[in-house]
Design a binder for these strands. Structure first.
Lengths: 208, 208, 208, 208
DNA sequence: TATGAATGAGACTTCATTCAT
DNA sequence: GATGAATGAAGTCTCATTCAT
């Protein structure tokens, strides 16, 4: 094939850039990250980045889409093996918290920058992120059908609630240097809350 | 005594700037917002902003602290009138979703920029935000004591879960121009989930 | 007369401003000095300075002219009492070095800023400074007539040489925090050099 | 190897910037000189200056150190060829006045801005300038040993006196547009004064 | 006279992007 | 494809000066 440079050919170089971007973006945030810094970490020249990505925005978006794409594929596969909706929800939740450890940088970037991007990239639709949410929807719909969750559950809201809870707890984990809690335990507690919460009818409160 | 400009005194002008900042920051995000734009919207000269705020960062942080301070005071008062822990949780949740409508811009700024700041402003501690979370903790602790929530509930995690759920749903509301759902209904559904979720015993493992 | 404020009337206030300017200019240099800082030190409002001086430049120039005017009048009187040209030269030199101690700030400002001003104030002619130099000229002319100095002495150059020597030594004194030498001794040595230098013919060097 | 721009490589471009800075600084003084003006004269973009210099201050200091370094090396070589201390003093003085013509801009900048910098740049030590003064010290020490200058001569003061005289006369030359005198003649007169002044015994006090 | 809040022009500096090599 | 020097647009912030009170 085409002759490859010493450190790997086009695709490998592209990936080096993407990984460098994750590292830098997660450390300093998108706006405080300099292209030249990413280039240095990736071991390429500044200009080289523009051979693989249209511009700085495109670098961020590619990162979102490609890396989240991998995450989505991965969790889809895991959930598919799952069992009933409750079991699959547990898998999803555990998997999310696991990512915190395995893909710390990526998660940090997504948590912080995806929100920004929604503001400053008028036209960007975070497709892969929506797919990620759709996995939750799927589980919830199934659960309703299976009778594991109550039939009047608002799926659109619930999936946001679940994701929000996971995301906020991940954020707290990432922000606190001291790592006050164990992701696995956190996953268990969140699962406990939603397992009961999505099933249960409103606790009868006498007068209420 | 106090010398007043044509459009109101110092405090009023400061507030005009703060409100303009909320508007601009919420529309474009902190980094894409220009001081000159905020000044124009506030009806002051660029330099005037620096009479009231040390720099652009300080403008954002003042906004966080002062406006969130008002929110915290407000919700504290409402919750204080509350009833049992469950009733107070409902008030808190409803109040949060109400803010979406009444203080849309502020909520948008906090949602998006607080994350950035938490992560990238080394020295900034979001005191008021933590107080907001503490209100939830208080309710949860009370609820455990009252027997409304299960006794082994992890308060630190739960309060993050609750806030995360609220926040994510608010974000989705704020980002979607079409306003797919009604905040009041959303509040009701979230309350339903957590009311059951925080009380419910662990789903019997036998049944799975 | 006109009613005076508690801290003295117009002239006194003007002088307070001038003295504050000397202090600040000597500490930070003209360009690094802020009008507001001078105002604060003088105990007046920023705007008040503009009642007494046209602008920042004018403040510096007034300072040059008025304060140097006092210096010129003073040294003229001292020199007038003088004796022969040699004695008067000694008085002049001693007086200059004395000023270093008595009027440190003023001297520092003049040394550093007068040079700048020549560059950036196109139209400014430092009249008082030239009068100061003229005092030296006068002494030198007299000395030639009296036979104390050699008749072919170039007065224009010599007066610059004398002033330059004094000025450079003053500068070194002012810059070194440790005050390595005594101004009186320095005056004596400079006098010794010029007393001999202005009188003596070129030392015959045999073959030269 | 080295990639070169259209008008010469890095070093050449750096030098163009430095020379442009000398020109602009000497005309208007440091604070009134704009980076964009220097860039325009150097034929580069504003930003390019920051590839070669850290900031505006650094540009000035680099100019001091590098250009004065050349001057120091040059005069050292000339003086080394010199003869006795008197002859070498004459060479030094002549050389200084020659610089006025050959390196007018540089001399103007150093004369005016070095004072500012000495006083207001806390951390800057003008190494090359001190080396320049050391050359005079060397000559004076030698002269004392050779018996050309009187043995009780205060070298520290005398070298400042000599430099001061040269500097002041240079300044007058540079400031007056009409060039009232010839640098070579001025050099001769200054030499005459100091040759006699540094040798001469204290004028007999009897005769006064 | 005196005040000092407000103004707004303008400078320095950064950094994404380009393009000659 | 790869490089990295060069570009230049644009933003933050400062501060002399004004003027309504």
């Amino acid at each position: 094939m085409a002759r490859r440079g010493p450190r790997g050919g086009g695709a490998a170089k592209r990936d080096r850039i993407l990984r460098a971007a994750i590292r830098i973006f997660s450390q300093k945030g998108y706006f405080n990250s300099k292209i030249s810094e990413i280039a240095r970490l990736a071991g390429v020249a500044d200009g080289t980045i523009y051979l693989y990505f249209k511009n700085k925005d495109d670098l961020l978006i590619s990162l979102f889409e490609e890396k989240m794409g991998e995450v989505v594929n991965d969790v889809r596969a895991r959930v598919a093996d799952g069992g009933d909706a409750l079991a699959r929800l547990e898998i999803f939740i555990r998997n999310h918290m696991d990512l915190l450890v395995k893909e710390a940088g990526l998660i940090e970037v997504i948590q912080v920058e995806l929100r920004q991007s929604n503001k400053f990239m008028k036209e960007y639709v975070p497709v892969k992120f929506l797919e990620y949410l759709d996995i939750i929807s799927g589980i919830l719909e199934d659960g309703k059908r299976e009778g594991v969750f109550r039939p009047d559950l608002n799926v659109t809201l619930s999936r946001r609630a679940i994701f929000g809870a996971l995301d906020e707890i991940s954020l707290a984990y990432v922000l606190s240097r001291k790592r006050k809690y164990d992701p696995a335990e956190a996953a268990a507690e969140i699962f406990r809350i939603f397992a009961a919460g999505l099933k249960g009818s409103v606790p009868s409160e006498g007068g209420r």
